[in-house]
């Protein structure tokens, strides 16, 4: 049985948008090794997005010709890269979640065989993304006063976008409350080791945060899409 198109788009959009954000680091990363690491993570996510979007329709059309309100990614992944600590905080929050979600989809969370196969494949890749984010969280949190403070500020700043991660996606048979509990347990454990602590405050702000799945996005997302889509829209069918 095929998973609902909305579920495929939700998962595919998360991977696509984060992939694009990470790709923006190319030419700007603090060291060459990180340039390569972030590009590799972006590439894994792009591969996942291509598979998921192709299951939902035409991958190019979905990527380049949809309007902002038609994207259903969580707002966390569209947040701008910020400083390196912001990118790592976003990676820690998202990859921990994505790994838990893919694990569940690979293990009975969907009766769509193709989606389960993708999840079983992708969970191995995401485990490396999470490992990468954890190691940087430890280095930054337990590094200098400046790196600690920046990491703390990044974790706090993105916290309000984490509530949306465990919002149920229709058509997927996942224990979302259990997923959120496990996510919180894992993130807390990493932050404690990094001499940081789990941010306080609501995980959903009172304004629109938490409506990405309904097509409501934060202001920087429109500009990201403009950059991502302009070539295809200006030169339909262009190839090289």
């Amino acid at each position: 049985m095929s998973a609902p198109r909305t579920a495929l788009l939700a998962l595919g959009d998360d991977a696509l948008v984060l992939s694009h954000r990470l790709g923006e680091w190319a030419g700007h990363a603090p060291v060459l090794e990180e340039e390569v690491a972030l590009a590799n993570i972006a590439l894994d996510l792009l591969g996942q997005a291509r598979t998921l979007l192709s299951m939902a329709g035409d991958e190019d059309e979905l990527t380049y010709l949809r309007e902002e309100r038609d994207f259903t990614n969580v707002q966390l992944v569209e947040r701008p890269n910020g400083d390196f600590a912001h990118t790592i905080a976003r990676q820690l929050y998202f990859s921990t979640h994505q790994e838990l979600l893919y694990e569940r989809l690979a293990d009975g969370g969907t009766d769509d065989g193709e989606l389960a196969a993708l999840a079983a494949k992708a969970v191995k890749e995401v485990a490396y993304h999470r490992d990468h984010a954890e190691h940087w969280t430890l280095r930054l949190g337990d590094g200098t006063d400046v790196s600690h403070e920046r990491m703390r500020a990044a974790l706090d700043g993105l916290w309000r976008y984490t509530g949306e991660l465990s919002q149920p996606i229709e058509g997927l048979d996942v224990d979302w409350d259990g997923l959120r509990e496990e996510w919180t347990r894992r993130v807390t454990a990493v932050l404690e080791r990094a001499s940081l602590s789990l941010p306080q405050g609501p995980r959903n702000a009172s304004w629109a945060a938490g409506a990405g799945r309904q097509g409501v996005h934060t202001e920087p997302f429109g500009r990201m899409l403009a950059e991502m889509q302009h070539l295809h829209r200006s030169h339909p069918g262009a190839s090289w």
Binding site: E33, E34, V36, A37, A39, N40, I41, L43, D44, E125, Y128, D131, H132, H135
Partner: peptide, 13 residues
Amino acid sequence: LLSRFSSTACKAL
């Protein structure tokens, strides 16, 4: 280990 990702996704440096 220098980096978990190297010239391609399948390699570490």
